[in-house]
Design a protein around this nucleic acid. Structure first.
Length: 350
DNA sequence: AATTCGGGGTC
DNA sequence: GACCCAGAATT
């Protein structure tokens, strides 16, 4: 095993040379680190930048955020995905104001008890904002270190071993830079497929590179894609469309159109749904172009269908008729908004 | 321990 | 077109 100082000094020297100018690297406050880290969870960096800048203009600090409504927060989050993150951010902001008297927690126990903050985010905040020697262990770090140590197999025990190894090599003076350097190395050089080993500051200290096995770590996964089909009900009444508030999930205030999952190609009883929840009188207008939506391991074939409603029943709880031009006031998963924008206006008028 | 939660970058 | 990502909460 190489010396610890060599590992981190090579890494930090490289990072000082190549690190990019990102909006959240301007000044590291606990708030800015927290928001950027939550936004970056499972989300590629380039997509986050714009959201982060907009967010900081709208919610410059914790107290400002804590006063916002759930809808305002979700509207700012729309398009980023993983919407429970936005709800958890709001909950946590209010906890910091009320229970911590607007003092951002600076220890692991308090941080990890906050909604939306787990091991990774707690360590990121502690190292970057508070300069405490807590190593982070995200997908980048795992891949870089698995290659560096030539660990072909991976399990829970290995994750603990990695954590203790990182504790022994993390730079005590610049733990935030150390962590960011390791992640940036994974993102730009030690990438998942075809790593650019010729650009790596660790060079032949990397055991996988030495053994020429860097391409087989991590192991290639077999595709486990699951196909789904969904019928999306666009129900029109005069110039209004029916939207439904999501009830699943903690504090999930996002809106949808009514939708029905197709089970093994059976016909979906859309009419029954409409009769039961919306109106006794309705006219099928047309099927609209299908839209394939990929997420996680799913491929969802969304088929929007248009109905005209007459004499609507009193609306159910969580249902709402909204005029088309006011639709942008409501937070939607962006796939549904995208589908809607694909439709031309005469689709609704015909 | 396995599943759920989304969207877009990327090759 | 399929994989993957600055993970956390729930089951």
């Amino acid at each position: 095993m190489m010396k610890q100082t060599s590992f981190s000094s090579k890494l930090l020297k490289w990072y000082a040379r190549i690190q990019r100018d990102l909006p959240w690297r301007k000044n590291f406050t606990p708030y800015s680190v927290w928001i950027s880290e939550i936004m970056l969870q499972q989300t590629v960096l380039s997509g986050v930048i714009h959201y982060y800048v907009k967010w900081m203009e709208r919610f410059p600090d914790v107290s400002n955020l804590a006063k916002a409504s759930s809808r305002q927060v979700l509207r700012m989050w729309e398009g980023l995905g993983y919407y429970s993150r936005a709800s958890n951010i709001l909950k946590t902001a209010r906890i910091i104001i009320k229970e911590h008297k607007n003092k951002f927690p600076d220890n692991y126990t308090d941080l990890i008890s906050l909604p939306g903050i787990g091991d990774y985010t707690a360590c990121a905040i502690l190292s970057i904002a508070f300069k405490k020697p807590c190593p982070v262990c995200d997908a980048n770090v795992k891949r870089v270190m698995r290659r560096f140590l030539a660990w072909k197999i991976w399990n829970r025990k290995k994750e603990n071993d990695l954590k203790s190894f990182l504790y022994s090599v993390i730079d005590k003076r610049a733990p935030g830079d150390f962590n960011q350097a390791l992640m940036e190395l994974g993102q730009t050089v030690c990438v998942n497929k075809n790593p650019k080993c010729s650009l790596c500051p660790l060079g032949s200290d990397c055991q996988a590179f030495k053994k020429h096995i860097q391409n087989s770590i991590p192991e290639n996964k077999s595709s486990g894609i699951i196909r789904k089909k969904t019928l999306l009900l666009l129900l029109l009444y005069k110039n209004k469309i029916l939207i439904v508030k999501r009830k699943k999930g903690v504090l999930s205030h996002l809106w949808n159109f009514p939708l029905m999952e197709k089970k093994n190609n059976d016909r979906v009883p859309a009419g029954l749904y409409i009769k039961k929840h919306v109106a006794l009188k309705f006219n099928f207008k047309k099927k609209l172009p299908k839209h394939i939506h990929y997420y996680t391991k799913y491929q969802d074939e969304i088929e929007p269908v248009l109905y005209h409603i007459s004499d609507p029943l009193p609306v159910m709880r969580d249902h709402k008729w909204v005029s088309l031009k006011h639709l942008d006031r409501y937070p939607f998963p962006s796939v549904y908004r995208k589908i809607l924008t694909l439709l031309d206006t005469d689709t609704f008028n015909s």
